[in-house]
Design a protein around this nucleic acid. Sequence first.
DNA 1: CTACGGATCGTCT
DNA 2: GACGATCCGTAGC
Length: 204
Amino acid sequence: MEKLKRDFYETDGVSLSQKLLGKRLVHIVDGERLSGIIVETEAYMGSLDKGAHSYRGKTERNKVMFGPSGFAYVYFIYGLYYCFNVVANKEDIPQAVLIRAIEPDEGLDSISLNRYKKSYESLTKKEKLNLTSGPSKLCTALKIDKSLNGCDLLSDILFIENTNKNDIKIKSAKRIGIDYAEEAKDFLWRFYDEKSPYVSKKVK
DNA sequence: CTACGGATCGTCT
DNA sequence: GACGATCCGTAGC
């Protein structure tokens, strides 16, 4: 399926979060496609959002968010993990979409090795569901790290493709892990496909 | 099922 | 010097 073009990303973060559900995130590693269908996202809305890294302005870490849309913002967190975001909107409007969960699609054995150091077929049912059901789990699974920060998603290394998926039931919920964000912590800016078992956390 | 603590370090104050 | 857009293992109910 064709790669999403720049204009797909040139919209606000909340809209893009919903548009990205059902699309396929692809990372080419040693010539192999590692991919998954996006099933959970969160919007981070710059100066409107006390939960966003970009709320207090541009820094060395968050500068990619201030650039044009359709680029990868990858950051390191808790001394151990990476999180992957898609930059939304336009230059100087620092909004982004955190990809929180995907459904593993291509390169299952490599994905399984990256996460559990064993083959896909040897995983338990629980381990299979746990491969990519969180923002840092999916980065480990698809080998996404800080070297991809600032990568253009119209490149041939890391990109997002259209799919034929049309049976998505979008649910909105509060975002996770931003209890410090005052009023913004209650904004319903997390979106997920209610039908997917790969979502990190469902409401009730 | 929920609750909590440890791991571990780049980034910002 | 403090802390985080997380994850995992353990403990208790």
